[in-house]
Design a binder for these strands. Sequence first.
DNA 1: AGCCATGCACCG
DNA 2: CGGTGCATGGCT
Length: 141
Amino acid sequence: MKATFAKTLSANDVGATGSHQAGILVPKADKELMAFFPVLDPAILNPDAWIICIDEFGDEWKFRYVYYNNRLHAEHGTRNEYRLTYLTKFFKRMGAKAGDSLLFSTTNEVGKYRISLKRKELPAEDSPPGVIVLQGWRRVH
DNA sequence: AGCCATGCACCG
DNA sequence: CGGTGCATGGCT
């Protein structure tokens, strides 16, 4: 199944906030996304998987897909979320800024994705009030 | 649910 | 010793 998803980058995602955690959040609420990315076993504490991403120039990037789930394991755990980390170098190379979009699409190979960075769209000067700038993840195809 | 932030380990 | 990433806590 071919699919494409886009994630609008937040300031924290690209490391612009001073967080040394360049990495984006993957909502576990989205079933399509859960199927899109590797399956991580909740029975394991903080399981992770590495995915290969090819950018538009043919360069390969390895990203870490982690399921922080200590809430399900540790006594007073508070985490229960999926994240994509290890993106610092990629963002630096691409010069990603908050508001840009990162696109993921599947390839023939399992665990391999095609990615590209889409620049933030400038707000149309004649935008009627109430126009919503999409945030977070959304399915493109 | 999602984004922001921090203490510490590791490595050049 | 500064940058990077991990794991976790905090705030909205």
